[in-house]
């Protein structure tokens, strides 16, 4: 039995009367790819931001990599990587400069940054573009680069918030290859998505509806319990109950 790297117990976040995240309970095991599904506005990003130490919860308990989300956010931040919905590299820096900056901020040594960034650029096949400004790259490449930067400092967990939004199917496929590679290297992957085919790639998934966790299991077992052959159908059955209008 693998260790639990994220533990969440009745975690809530309210904005006034609005319960963005409503008493969610789940845990993530070390080394797994954990999918976080839900319609727009279901509370996925809010929950993820709490776990990343970007947002204070209203109530409940949670720990990430053994650190408390109320008091030890800065310690959590040392051990995680994060890729936000918004593209988050600097457009006016080159690929190498972006890598160097984020690597340096996480305390990776200079020699190590140099070594790893050369490897990274080679793996991504971006040798020719390494000294170009990131702003000039196509979106698919940017996303792959952003992911690589998020795990550059070898975090224990990487949080990906809709990483493949607006990316073509081939690039999405390549992106998931990278996620598998990261998982093989021992990084726990916590990923939110809308795409049901992507949900199938995860070891376990939760489906969030209106701020609550409505289902939590492996994709195969979920399909079984909902008596269907597609994740799409599982998602429809759950999401139909939603009262919040999606935005």
């Amino acid at each position: 039995m693998a260790n639990k790297i994220i533990e969440c117990h009745e975690l809530s976040k309210h904005f006034g009367d609005f319960k963005a995240v409503d008493q969610i309970t789940f845990d993530v095991k070390e080394g797994e790819i954990f999918g976080f599904l839900g319609a727009n506005g279901a509370g996925k990003t809010t929950a993820m931001r709490i776990l990343c130490g970007l947002s204070y919860p209203t109530s409940g308990e949670a720990s990430v990599a053994g650190f408390n989300v109320y008091k030890q956010q800065e310690k959590i931040k040392k051990h995680i990587g994060y890729m936000s919905q918004k593209f988050s590299l600097y457009d006016n820096l080159t690929i190498l400069e972006n890598i160097e900056f984020y690597g340096g901020v996480y305390g990776v040594s200079r020699e190590e940054i140099k070594k790893r960034s050369n490897e990274l650029v080679a793996t991504l096949g971006l040798e020719k573009e390494a000294k170009k400004l990131v702003g000039s790259l196509p979106l698919g490449w940017k996303q792959k680069l952003a992911f690589s930067v998020a795990i550059f400092h070898r975090p224990k967990i990487v949080f990906l918030d809709e990483p493949t939004g607006g990316v073509d199917p081939i690039t999405r496929r390549q992106f998931w290859d990278m996620i598998y590679q990261a998982a093989e290297d021992g990084i726990t992957v916590f990923v939110t998505t809308h795409y049901m085919d992507e949900a199938e790639y995860c070891n376990r998934i939760t489906v969030m509806v209106d701020g609550r966790v409505e289902a939590l299991d492996s994709p195969a077992r979920l399909k079984e319990s909902f008596h269907t052959h597609s994740m799409d159908e599982v998602f429809y059955q759950l999401a139909r109950k939603a009262k919040r209008s999606s935005d």
């Binding site: 970007l54 800065e74 994060y82 918004k86 593209f87 901020v105 305390g107």
Partner: peptide, 14 residues
């Protein structure tokens, strides 16, 4: 505005 501050905030930068 660009969103890079979020990325900064999630790092252990003091």
């Amino acid at each position: 505005e660009v969103g890079t501050i979020e990325q900064i905030n999630v790092t252990p930068i003091k």
